[in-house]
Write a protein that binds this DNA or RNA. Structure first.
Length: 273
DNA sequence: TACCAGGACGTGC
DNA sequence: GCACGTCATGGT
């Protein structure tokens, strides 16, 4: 099956390449996009963006297609911040994904003190080693492994996958989630969720904000990493160094739009706008 | 070679 | 509570 959407507000490249997700690859004139145990082929001609998948309902929600992004883009441009205005205009087709919760937890544990190309490689090798092999109209692929599958792997597996010192975090957190699940995280407000996430080994403030934003739809999250620190200094003339205070500052300015604006800024900075 | 990448943890104070 | 050293790995 397939469906299409106005390409003006759904740009696959910007949506997938902006750093919120690590499992996608170029395919034909578009991308293969993977989430949990599912896959889709997404491509655009600049007028219509088309999603092809056996799980169209899943990907309609995954790409957040019920939300009106024209309002978010206009809000972002209303602040008169050059980097933000330029990025929001160029990336009006960038959408914040509704990603799998457990996949976000492991992916962003891996992301700490790491770079995006290497993060993608590590996650890919973990999926190949532990994820169920699936077939699709676009070829075979591996699902993201279940927490129990991850908990069953030896710590040396994660080291050989390139995870480095994060190997122990993956073992301990997957063992915990395999045992107790993540239902304890359901229905929490943003503040409580953040507090709970910080109790997992390998999840600190920044990773918790990413998981809350990309896995739990908490748009009042503003993850602060080294790139955002640079944006804070150079584009907002900020002087505070504490990341928690920097995040609080941005949330106080952007409120419920924080997560979207954070992505415009982050991606725009990486694109050197 | 030293520094950087979507940082977090443990220790010492 | 806060500052600081340490933690793999690959790219520049």
């Amino acid at each position: 099956m397939k469906f299409d959407f106005d390409a003006r507000y759904f740009n696959p490249e910007h949506t997938l390449d902006c750093g919120q997700v690590f499992r996608f690859s170029r395919y034909r004139d578009g991308f293969l996009s993977l989430s949990a145990d599912k896959i889709c082929y997404v491509h655009s001609d600049g007028v219509k963006t088309v999603v092809e998948s056996d799980d169209c309902d899943y990907f309609y929600n995954y790409f957040d297609l019920d939300r009106d992004y024209s309002e978010i883009v206009e809000k972002a441009k209303s602040y008169g911040i050059p980097l933000l205005s330029k990025s929001a205009e160029l990336c009006r087709g960038l959408r914040i994904l509704n990603q799998n919760r457990e996949e976000m937890i492991y992916s962003f544990i891996i992301s700490q003190n790491n770079n995006i190309p290497r993060i993608k490689g590590i996650i890919s090798r973990i999926c190949e080693g532990l994820g169920e092999k699936k077939s699709s109209p676009f070829g075979d692929y591996h699902a993201f492994p279940s927490s129990s599958a991850m908990a069953g792997a030896d710590i040396s597996f994660y080291r050989s996958a390139g995870a480095g010192y994060r190997d122990e975090y993956l073992c301990r957190t997957s063992a915990r989630i395999a045992k107790e699940g993540v239902t304890r995280l359901d229905g929490l407000d943003a503040e409580s969720l953040r507090k709970e996430l910080l109790t997992y080994k390998g999840i600190g403030p920044k990773v918790a904000d990413c998981v809350a934003l990309f896995g739990f739809g908490k748009s009042q999250s503003f993850p602060v990493d080294t790139w955002v620190e640079k944006i804070y200094r150079e584009d907002f003339k900020g002087e505070v160094k504490d990341r928690k205070k920097i995040s609080d500052y941005f949330v106080s300015v952007f409120g419920e739009y924080s997560g979207y604006i954070q992505q415009y800024l982050f991606y725009g900075k990486r694109l050197n706008l």
